[in-house]
Design a protein around this nucleic acid. Structure first.
Lengths: 205, 205, 205, 205
DNA sequence: TATGAATGAGGCTTCATTCAT
DNA sequence: AATGAATGAAGCCTCATTCAT
């Protein structure tokens, strides 16, 4: 994948971002060199600095934009759903679809937290907590309403998130199961795990 | 100048291993430098090469020994248990305890697969598959016996493993919940997820 | 801090090549460090890698270009000469002049064969064989024509080449004998050695 | 070629010497490491220092002993021969046989002059000059006696030595020509080169 | 907007050598 | 006579980054 000859301005910026995501996903942030990235986009290494100030900034931007997107879309996905079990099912379905679709972005955000400088990491961790809090709240409400069992909603939320996120480790678009089948399977695991009766339909993510 | 008196072979080897695990856990394999590692152990960087041939070998040894240990211990943990649901519970309990106790080793084995050279990675992946296969078999038998629902045992196993392994991301020995409480909570999530009736006692891991 | 103003690309490349030849000639390839080379050219060691990929490549390029040059020029030097003895004299004269003029390059090509990696060495050895073959053919033709004695042209060629090349070991441009005198002396040795009657004039190399 | 278990004292010293010669011959002095040498002899690297003080000393000893041997044996080879042409033939024959037999030692002495420290090099160069002087004297006497042409005996001697020494570059004991055939061939080249009539028999070296 | 030359720090690794045991 | 642990210097090489053009 080489140079987009004559690429200019915004197109180059987007190409850098895309190549950056791919390379970080494949090799890890530390292992990816700006030389590689530049080669991928058809630039000299030094030229990248028109588009970011620091390798660290590139990572931070990718991760932050991912989390902003995630937070915006989960809000949409839950909008208008009130029943706690339905909300739980909708959360799980959304999370799965998002993670199957944007596997690389998600993977990076999870794996490369470690590579973020303390200040940047703090910002990202705070955003992640806002996302987790959404699930924790759903569990808490469901427990309060007697619709499911989650005596420790925080721990249960972590467990559920880990399970759903795990799909990034092996999902392939060309695998034997469809996204819908995988969603159904996992939503059942989640609802069963907290003793909720499956019912409502989940909106698409 | 020769050796700093008081240092000795096997003790140094063990110190290097321990420091290696800690540093890889904290910074990642790529980000850890042998200078750091040497400083941590009180050696010159070059002196490390009495104890391994290559930075890559250090990683491979850590990961391989972890998986050998894991495979040996899960066999013990399941030994003598026949009922599929009991086996599932025992598997989950063992996995959790092991991952809470040897968090760093586990974390490294999961995160740094990427940093292993192809040949080494193949060996490790094969060992991991043997471990996964144990859980898949349990689910398959349970399904066959009508004791639980796992129409797709492979996918269910991945989901369960991701959930249980996730505990490494946040568990602290000095946290508010005991290991036993966490085990109970997670085993319930697992059994509930596959629609199994909780029953048997789980052997300690 | 960026570049030291006043330095420029091709000039630097040529300076590196020249310094490389000198240092390898003086210290040997293994003994020459890239630190030395960089210092000689006024660069940081890492900066050398704009100009070659590998220390080995630097050596290979030097040796290969030397042999390409040698092969091109011997063809010129023999062009149009048909009499075998005249060709032998022309070959010897050319070889001597070339070796006196480009002593370092020649010396490196002979001494550092050992330092070339197998693949590179094979390429160079093949080129050398083409050069040797020219002399062998001359001797063979002379023998066939009854103009000289060379029952074993291959061995004789090696002996002659060794003798002529030996001049690199001690020749100094400021020594007591001129190049012309040395050429005459050696050509006599060669022709006498194979029992040929001196005759033709040798074209300058 | 590994450890001579239980080898002690003088036997070890000789093994080190032999392995040293082989390794320097194969890889060059700079490229040979004391680790290699130690492994070859079945010792730890540090243990070599019972047998020499310095890597440099090892080289110097090898080269010096070679030259001492050479000087002693050429004296024997010429002993009792008075006719200059006969002496020249004897010298050439001796030189060739010695170089075919002790190829590695000779090669090292020629190639690794460069690796000797200045003081050591000066000593060796002086010994070499004594050897060269023998040939120069023979040529001078032959010229004075009108038995051969060598207007510049020093230069002629260098040329002859280079030719004869060149045999190290390609001679193989299992090659198609015998030592005797090669000696004859080269002696003819030498005598022919200086216009001497072949006559006397050459003593074996 | 991009290049091309360069920096300086630091990466992993190997080396000759030392010395207590 | 030999080991085994260690040193300290240096090896080749790669990196993120800078900046004149």
């Amino acid at each position: 994948m080489a140079r987009t000859v004559g690429s200019s301005g915004p197109k180059t910026a987007e190409a850098i971002r895309a190549a950056g995501i791919r390379l970080i996903y494949e090799h890890g942030f530390e292992a990816m060199s700006l030389r590689q990235l530049a080669a991928e986009v058809g630039l000299q290494p030094g030229s990248l600095y028109k588009y970011f100030d620091t390798k660290q900034d590139l990572l931070f931007d990718i991760v932050r934009e991912h989390l902003e997107d995630l937070l915006a879309k989960i809000a949409d996905a839950l909008d208008g759903i009130v029943d706690p079990v339905a909300r739980l099912a909708a959360f799980a379905a959304f999370h799965l679809r998002y993670h199957m679709t944007l596997k690389s972005n998600v993977y990076i955000a999870n794996m490369e937290l470690r590579s973020l400088e303390p200040d940047n990491r703090a910002i990202i961790v705070a955003m992640r907590k806002r996302y987790e809090a959404i699930l924790i709240d759903i569990l808490r409400e469901g427990q309060a309403a007697g619709a499911l069992h989650a005596a420790e909603p925080r721990v249960a939320a972590f467990a559920i998130l880990a399970m759903l996120t795990g799909i990034c480790n092996w999902y392939r678009a060309d695998g034997p199961m469809t996204q819908d089948e995988l969603v159904t399977l996992h939503v059942d695991l989640v609802l069963g795990g907290v003793g909720a009766k499956r019912q409502a339909v989940h909106k698409a993510g």
